[in-house]
Each structure stands twice: as C-alpha cells, then as structure tokens.
Amino acid sequence: MSLILAIESSCDDTSAAVIRDGEVLSNVTATQTIHEQYGGVVPEVASRKHQINIIPVVKAALDKAQINKTQLTAIAVTRGPGLLGSLIVGVSFAKSLALALSIPLIDVNHMKAHILAHFAEDPKPSFPFLCLTVSGGHTQIVKVTAPLEMQILGSTIDDAAGEAFDKSGKIMGLKYPAGPEMDKLAQNGNPIFQFAEPKVNGLNFSFSGLKTSILYFLKKQLKTNPNFIDENINDICASVQHQIVYILIKKLKQAASETGIREIAIAGGVSANSGLRKELAIAGKECGWNTYIPDFQYCTDNAGMIGVAAEFSYREKDFSDLNMVPQARLKME
C-alpha cells in the first residue's frame, strides 16, 4: 500500500494532497478559509508566501484525509518547472519531512503531472495518447507512450493560450485575468469578427500575433464608434474565443493525424473553457477520437496531480535522494 503526501508550490498556489494507492483522499490549496482555520494570512501574489502557507495547507490535507503523518509511506514534491524561489519552499519542506519520517522522497515534473492528472479518476486514457496542455502559462501537445514516457510534439513560441484569453480580455477592459469572464460573455455572442491566423510551422503555436490583431481591430473600430466594445462585447468575446479554440483544435487534429493516435486528452486550466470543451467533443465525433477532460480540481495547479504522478514512480521505486534540487526550467524529456 502507498500513502503519499504531495506538495505543489511552483507558481502562485500552495497546495497539498494525500493519495492512497493512486486515489486522491484530499487535495487542498491555500485559501482564506484554510488560514482562518489554521492561522496566517494570504498575500495576493508572491512566492515567499508559500512559506506562510505550507504548514497550514499540509495540516489541512492530512486532516481532511484523516491521516496521521506517521502513516505516510512517501513524500512527493514538484521539482520544476516553475519560479525558483517558490519551488525551493516546497522542495525544502518535502525533504525535511521525508528525512524526519524516514520515508522516500519522489520528485515530480509539474508538466507531466498536469497530464497524469487524467489518472486521478475514471475514465482514464489508454496508452499511447495525446494530451493538449493549455493554461495561463503553457500550451503544448504531448505524446504519452507510458506513464513516465512523454514527448513534446509542439508548444507555444510566445504567449500561452490562457494568456491570449487574459490579455485580449484586458484590451477590452475586462479585469485581469479575464479568461473565465470572456467565456461567460462569449456564450451570449456569435463569432462574427475575424482575426489573423498565425502562421507557425509544425505543431507549434503562436498567440502573440492574435493579441496584436485584436488590439488593432478594436482600435480601428473605436475610431468610428467609441462605444464599439460595449455594444459588441459578447460577439467580440465569442470571436476571440472561437479563434483561439480553432487554432488549438486544428493543431490537435494535425497531431492526431500525424501520429495516428485517437486517444485525445486535454489538461490545464483552459480545459474549463466551454468553447474548447464543445469543439473537442465535435472534433472527437468527426475524427473518431476518445476524448478525456479531467475534473476541474485537477486542471488548475494542484497537489493532487503531483501525488497521482508520484504513484507511478512509487510503483517503480523511482525515488530521489536528498541532494535533489529544484529546477526552474526542468525539461520533460
């Protein structure tokens, strides 16, 4: 039996989870509620805030799973990629706890964990499968041959897809990050406006040009009608969303056709986008894919996915030693 405490601190959120034999018993991310219950305050965005968060979050994860730390069989932690100052907090804490409890330490690649989050719950994709990971910071298509064997087929050469949502929304005057708000507005609009499609070779993505194209389009329209954005906000959002989703699905189709793989998964925070979900379902029907989207709690940055990924290493007894250091640019392959 395995009972793993997983810790994630690669970017904004501090998160801890308890996983028993691959099943997530608790998955807790630092929030005001946790702090009211366990002490401390939550600063807005920062990395040293992880130092304030980590103990309350770990306590909450253990309590929620009704597990005592002495029962744990391993500690898992995000090694990278991420912000070095943030990663160090999680890694140092994990090492200390593993040492104190005399149990193994497992280091996990954050990007691999996003993909392996699909194994937290049924239905699970079978190997090999393709995964499109889309979030505020990442956009990539990965071929997954085995739980720990992955190959990046394409990734963004500038902005991430989530960032394209956030920044386009900002241009329209929505509050940053604007992704979820744009999704809501888009559902009441129609994609009647056209924006430039980036020309990128192979399976790579580019969203920087789209952002600029939207910016120029709006500037031009505002010259003749100062209320253009207010009057057309739903249609503009629908058009932007349509274009981003179109680009993502197009490359996904290309990857599927080039590899002949029909098990298709999406991961990361943008998988919550209703437009992407809808188009993925349509493409799936059209191309005969089996499609997979994890539960939302496993899409954003969270420790549950770190624990699920660590379970695979645990079975292989692939442990890391205490000299392991975090890596801001940890590669996937």
């Binding site: 990395s47 990629p81 912000l83 070095l84 963004t156 500038d158 902005d159 991430a160 920044k167 801001a328």
Partner: peptide, 13 residues
Amino acid sequence: DEASSPTYSLVNE
C-alpha cells in the same frame, strides 16, 4: 532557447 512570455511564470531564464 525560444523565449516565450513570462507573464504567468513571472520569470523565465
């Protein structure tokens, strides 16, 4: 290296 946006990650190296 291919430099991409650091808006989300804050720092890319």
